[in-house]
Amino acid sequence: MTDLLRIADREFRSRLLLGTGKFPSLPVMRDALDASGTEIVTVTLRRIDLDSPEPNLLEFVDRDRYLLLPNTSGAEDADDAVRLARLARAAGLSDWVKLEVTPDPRWLLPDPVETLAAAERLVKEGFTVLPYIGADPVLAKRLQEVGCATVMPLGAPIGSNRGLKTRDSIAIILEQAEVPVVVDAGLGAPSHAAEAMEMGADCVLVNTAISVARDPVEMARAFRLGVEAGRAAWRAGRAPERAVGEGAEASSPLTGFLRGTA
């Protein structure tokens, strides 16, 4: 059965988005992308170092195979983010943008006020906007209202590999969502990704957990399996847990009043 991920007007088979940062080398990154099965990869814009040119990332990313998702990494406010998104579009990269506004250099936590402001402007300019946010359900609703194509709540701070520390808030976001929910940041192991998918997340974005693993290619494959397992489990409808150690609460019957009525 086909189970496609639909974001804006596009459909994808894979529910694993990959970041391209921090890989030991570009060939390893290329092989990890391949092993992960991903169809969406994020890239960043940076000033060219005119003194020591580096190899070109895009020579290692097959654009027929992957949708490039430029992020606004480095933006500290809405103006920065809008400027970066416009640059990426003018360069023909994409009119999709992963909106990141992270003035906090220590945890790279997103600024909700600037993110909402930037999202509103970018949607008006015709961008397909995928905002990276703290796991705040109200912010998620506000971003949907201004027309974002997804919301991307963090599971834990970027690069922390701590898993779904924001589980309860993400559950509320999922319950209320009208657009796909991408759990982004903090997922450190395939089991974390599976957990997010079991909860009903539409997809996850992983970077550090793969790129910094001892064997990034094998870890990319492991995440692919974790995401697939979690998705299948969600679709299958997991069996209920049974409480252990709690005495069953005796309660009086509630439906006796129906006896003798029609």
Partner: peptide, 25 residues
């Protein structure tokens, strides 16, 4: 846009940023 690289003539005082996509999460 890339299609304008050939037609734009640089003027004294211009601020030019050359940027490229790099790896990032």
């Amino acid at each position: 846009g890339r299609d304008r690289f050939g037609s734009v003539t640089l003027q004294p005082g211009d601020r030019l940023e050359l940027v490229r996509p790099v790896a990032g999460g």
